[in-house]
């Protein structure tokens, strides 16, 4: 065989955007500058400032805030937040993957119907949905009522205001953010690749682990990012369903700004939190780039 070795076309022969492109991008650039760059800059500046007795920010340089961030008390809270977020992410992957994969493989009509079902919760306010969970989980709530009606021994169980309730709440809130990106990559998966795996002797399990998972990895990575990072910072669910008994980093930051009125310290926590996000994102991107070749 002596066909010439055609090199693959080089990607990205892209020109610089012209003025029309910039004009079209302007609203987004403005939005990002006003609501992301500027606030982040303010946060960064505040985090190096001192605070006066009444909670005002005094513009005098100090590293004290950052020293406090690395106090074991806060490190433990960081660690706990990461632990809860990691557990939430893991459950979302395990629960969300089969759902996303099934939707992606369904007929077109069913695909649209099922996707709609995934998105239905977004039609109601997030807080209202969280309160709904409270009525389900509380001592005289739906779940306990159901268990008692079924004469399941023990009960009523103390479900609300436990770590389990927090994880339930987090999984519930973030599951769609895991399902949608995995759906996105599973939907693009060429069925003949799965057939090729079977054809070459891979049973269902090995076809899944050797072909399907690697090829949907970009979706899993995106879903992980969309679930893990916000879950670390979530404070409403931990407040409402955890009974504020186990503070997360989000609760602490919220407290520093709204109750303790220590903005510089809150800002320092926020900056560290953002850095964690950037590092996680960077790692996932590197992995994604490797997968994409």
């Amino acid at each position: 065989m002596h066909a010439p070795a055609d090199p693959a076309p080089l990607p990205g022969d892209r020109r610089h955007p012209g003025w029309i492109a910039w004009a079209l991008l302007a609203p987004m650039v403005f939005w990002l500058a006003a609501f992301v760059v500027v606030p982040a800059a303010i946060l960064l500046v505040y985090s190096f400032c001192e605070r006066d007795e009444v909670g005002g920010v005094v513009f005098r340089f100090t590293l004290e805030n950052y020293q406090r961030v690395f106090d074991p008390v806060y490190l433990r809270i960081f660690a706990r937040s990461i632990g809860y977020a990691a557990l939430t992410t893991a459950i979302c992957v395990v629960v969300g993957y089969p759902v996303a994969y099934t939707i992606a493989r369904a007929s077109e009509v069913w695909r649209h119907r099922l996707l709609l079902l995934v998105m239905v919760p977004f039609w109601t306010s997030f807080l209202i949905r969280t309160y709904a969970w409270i009525t389900i989980l509380k001592q005289e709530g739906l779940l306990n009522g159901f268990l008692q009606a079924m004469h399941a021994g023990g009960g009523p169980f103390n479900l609300l205001y436990t770590p389990a309730a927090v994880v339930i709440g987090l999984v519930y809130a973030y599951l769609p953010f895991m399902i949608l990106p995995i759906y996105g990559s599973a939907e693009k998966l060429d069925n003949s690749l799965i057939e090729a795996a079977y054809d070459l002797g891979a049973g269902p399990v090995r076809a899944f682990s050797a072909v399907i998972v690697p090829l949907t990895m970009p979706g899993i990575a995106a879903g992980t990012l969309l679930v893990f990072v916000p879950a670390i910072g979530m404070f409403a669910i931990t407040d409402l369903m955890g009974g504020a008994k186990v503070p997360m980093i989000g609760n602490v930051i919220q407290n520093q700004f709204l109750q303790a009125r220590n903005w510089p310290f809150g800002a320092a926590l926020g900056v560290v939190f953002m850095l964690m996000f950037v590092v996680t994102y960077g790692l996932l991107q590197r992995r994604g780039a490797r997968l994409a070749g």
Partner: peptide
């Protein structure tokens, strides 16, 4: 038996 697919179906990863 093994098949050569119309679209080749090579594993891109």
């Amino acid at each position: 038996v093994n098949q050569v697919f119309q679209s080749y179906a090579l594993f891109p990863h």
